[in-house]
Design a protein around this nucleic acid. Sequence first.
RNA 1: GGGCCCGUAGCCUAGCCAGGAUAGGGCGCCGGCCUGCGGAGCCGGAGGACCCGGGUUCAAAUCCCGGCGGGCCCGCCA
Length: 737
Amino acid sequence: MSESWRCVVDKLPEVVARVLGIDKSIVVDLINTGRLKIAPTPDPKMGDFGIAVHPLLKNTERSKWSEIGSLLATELYSSTRDECWVEKVEFVNGYLNITINYHGILRKLVEDYFTGKIFRELERVGNGEKVVVEHTSANPVHPLHIGSGRNSVVGDTFARLLSKLGFNVETRFYVNDMGRQVATLVYGAKIVESSGISIPSSIKPDHWYGAIYALTNILIEKNKLEKKLRDKINQIIEKTSSLCNPCLEGRLEGIPRELCFEFCSISWRKNYRFNIKKIRDIYREIKKTSKTTQNPLITELKNLIEEYKAELSEYIDFAKAEARLAIQYPELHSALKASIRDYREAEEEINKLMQLAESGDSETISLFRRVIEPVLNGFKETLSSIGIYFNGFDFESNPEVVKTAHEIVEELLKKGYAKTIEGGAIEVNLDYAAEVNEKVLKLFYPDRAGRFIVRRSDGTTLYVTRDIAYTLYKFRELGARRVYNVIAIEQTREQKQLKAVLYLLGYEQEADNLHHFAYEMVHLKGMRMSGRRGVYYTIDEMLVDAKTNILKKLFEKQSSVKLEDSVEIAEKLAVSNVRAILVSVDPSKVLVFNPEKIGEVEYGTIIQYAFVRAQGVVRNLWGLEFLDNPGQVVEKALGLTSRIVGTELTIEEKKLVEDIFKYPSILRQAYSEMSPNKILEYALNLALDFNKFYEKYPVVSEKDENKKYTRAAITVMTLILLSELMDILGFPKLRKM
RNA sequence: GGGCCCGUAGCCUAGCCAGGAUAGGGCGCCGGCCUGCGGAGCCGGAGGACCCGGGUUCAAAUCCCGGCGGGCCCGCCA
């Protein structure tokens, strides 16, 4: 269809110039500047696409529009009918509506698709260029949840798309094995190990270690908060006590007597058991008083109590999380609780572990690796269940990369972009860099570029520093010509800093070819996820929920599918639906997901169903199984080319032909705009349009041979495209359902 | 305080960058349709201040300005 557009647009200037007696170049200019626009019509009855010619008629009286318009239509028709597959041109209130001869297009499509020309052309986009896609890269301290799942699916889908476009794609998982979070996990795991507890064979390792991490973190944080709360209470007691006498003696302006009594009550009973409830009562009174009084002592006390309340609610969150985990994992809870008594000791231990790991202490590094390994195995298991595999895992603690990180710091110092600041840390001044380097300026504009630390005062590197080194590794060691980092949008600043440093160090090409593929967060309805508290909705659970839902439906409708097949089918549909949900929304938008409604979002099922139906047609037509031998089906279909003649296409058929025509441009668009959601949307539309076509027009039993083979060709093209799209979307392919 | 992103029916979403006709889908809701290439479907219906207010234009969901609401970022964290 777009070829027809282009063709018509090419002819347009000459026709318009002739009819309106204006200069051809004016029209060309209007088209090039987008003032003359071409777009699909809102209703196929009006034609297939229309050109809005209002700007040309601007100076013409409205009453003469139809006269001139009709003339334009006739002239345009006669000069495009043969070359541009145009069947009809009509003028309707300011639009030239063009109806296409779909048969011409269909014949071309059939040839291009069945000879594979379309797919070969698409592979020339990448032309074998090496591209590294880093995705998932979740901290190995808890199982993959729906947020990391979005990363995985978006990244994997994009990588698959790049492969289809002929890029030589390598996917990498960056394992963070030396940060504070991992150190916390290792600290907890050591306690568990020394208590003689080993992982039960029935529990998936990432979930087990996720519980250890959460409990360790919770116990430390709780302990810390307990101490803070106690301090705060003491401060409140002190404050109120000091107010007691002055208040009673009427030396505090604007404070009611009742409040004074409350103050004193606290003061007088401070040597007995303290009643926490009292604080609430006082707070209520103080809030009332603070509305009428400006007394700074009251404001001070109010702030103090508000801080206390905030800390208390945080404490309660942790306590709840602890209680839940204590019930689920009693042995872990009691072991950890017995050992984590003072948060200062624990944090000291954790810091020690971090420093040892960063300094390259081989024993510590291997301890870290040993703890992380089972978690990574859990990740791999989850990911493989949704069809995601990596070409490699890169460890942050890799000595080579750490060494490069230090070299980068030296280089930055030498070039004058970084300097040692007070306290001994090394800081990069990007504000200065932005003044001398336009690329850096543009990267952050209109925001200030700012400064950031690349080496701590104790000599260790930071995440960004190591990330810079890792990026160079991707280009130099992995041989990437281009790199996509699928990383949460919240890390945009860090990704810019990384890019800026590449520019500053003279890696201009690498910086230009480094892309941050940013995606927004996933919010769960009715749940605030937090890895630190062990609250998350995991991919594993999501898959089970989806599967259960599908099975329930399957049994309700009493399908002809055999019982032993139904579980497998439900599993594959679950994978499709889960992947579809996670890729369905534009990456720049927050994805809100309600686990309760998992059975209601079934994009995957819809696509699978169309795929199964199309296979059914081929099966009945030629007795061929597409999944066993797609080549044979295509060959058979190619034989139809000569038999596609003459018949008028129905609206549903036209719609499908249009869809099929769009395929290459959709892939290119999804690639250049980094929006894999467009692939899903397109696949969904194709499936829906196919369902409508399928419902209305028989293929196998059609008596009119022209119609029959035309429809067969459309069906096979749809089948091939659905198959290609499912490759990209990472759906398993069903034969029956 | 500064910077970025998002705001489209009860819910979710496309369209916005490159302004055009009746704002496209899906879920949910209501009403129809099974001797069929498998009904996990199809047909029809109800349901919209395209967040608000200005501006530019023959024409604004789309561009510009100003608000409002939500999210994210501005660490010797990762």
